[in-house]
Design a protein around this nucleic acid. Structure first.
Lengths: 146, 146
DNA sequence: CTTGAAGCTATAGTTGCTAGAGACATTAGG
DNA sequence: CCTAATGTCTCTAGCAACTATAGCTTCAAG
């Protein structure tokens, strides 16, 4: 049995994050030691690794919740799991397309900046006037900041 | 002079968002009508368009705050503005690289899914075991969900 | 046996908004 | 001119997915 710290080290997840996952019901309530400390076995370890990996692949906690409950029913069809993964793929492709456009625009901006005064700065100028942009990167839903 | 709704329509920004920007000091406090409603002129419009455009390009509000204060000092060097834009470019490239790896991995997952039972589902299996992955998409800081 | 690390709970903060409640302002139609 | 429908006001709370802090208790090593 592992303490929460060992489990966190093993799975590459921070301790408060594990407690958070338990709190929102993504991990079951852990066993406790005589001194009220959480103790984890192999199953909890696997479940946490699953969550971690899915998070690394950009799945939301909601999607992970669904995937976990699917993986608890091994004899069901995997169509639902497949659909979740495909939706995630579509989402990733959408973000990729958007980021590619942003990259092009940012490159244009910094390349054109001659390094003079703010008054002539291409960066500031372009930001103030979208019509100076080559691509239409407008309106698409918010690009989140990490 | 525009009311907040007209300004929002003109700039493509929702009304509560404008009030939020004012609240956090990104927009100056607006003039008020006799009936206490916010009124905006051309300058506010331009400033909001600048913010909107920078947000579209993925700049954080903090970065935008800096860019705005730079643009208020037209005779200064634009090195700082350039640095912010370059940092944003680097960040976008980093995310792009990461998303590209995720896309590859997700594609592998869904292609390999034979559409049978959960017990044999490649999606579930891969999520449970990172060593089944082709690329190392681990540890990099959280990919945020929009 | 003591000390320091690791654990516990509970609460609040982060980013960039969005949603709701309940009250006042403005405007279009009849 | 009155009413109804919008629009706007303030304030508070909520979203994701954690992270940080405070003030404890417990555990393991020396």
């Amino acid at each position: 049995m592992l303490t929460i710290g060992k489990l966190g080290d093993a799975a590459g997840v921070k301790v408060p994050t594990i407690r958070y996952y338990e709190q929102i019901g993504l991990l079951p309530e852990a066993e406790r030691s005589s001194g009220n400390q959480r103790l984890y076995g192999r199953k909890a370890m696997e479940r946490l690794a699953f969550i971690r990996h899915a998070r690394d692949l950009g799945f939301t906690l909601e999607a992970i919740r669904d995937l976990l409950s699917l993986s608890d029913r091994p004899d069901q069809s995997c169509a639902a799991a497949d659909a979740i993964a495909r939706a995630q793929l579509v989402e990733v492709e959408r973000r990729l397309a958007r980021l590619t456009a942003l990259k092009a625009e940012l490159e244009r901006m910094v390349v054109q900046c001659a390094g003079g005064k703010i008054a002539d700065c291409r960066v500031i100028e372009v930001l103030g006037d979208h019509s100076l942009c080559a691509t239409d990167h407008r309106h698409p839903e918010t690009e989140p900041t990490p």
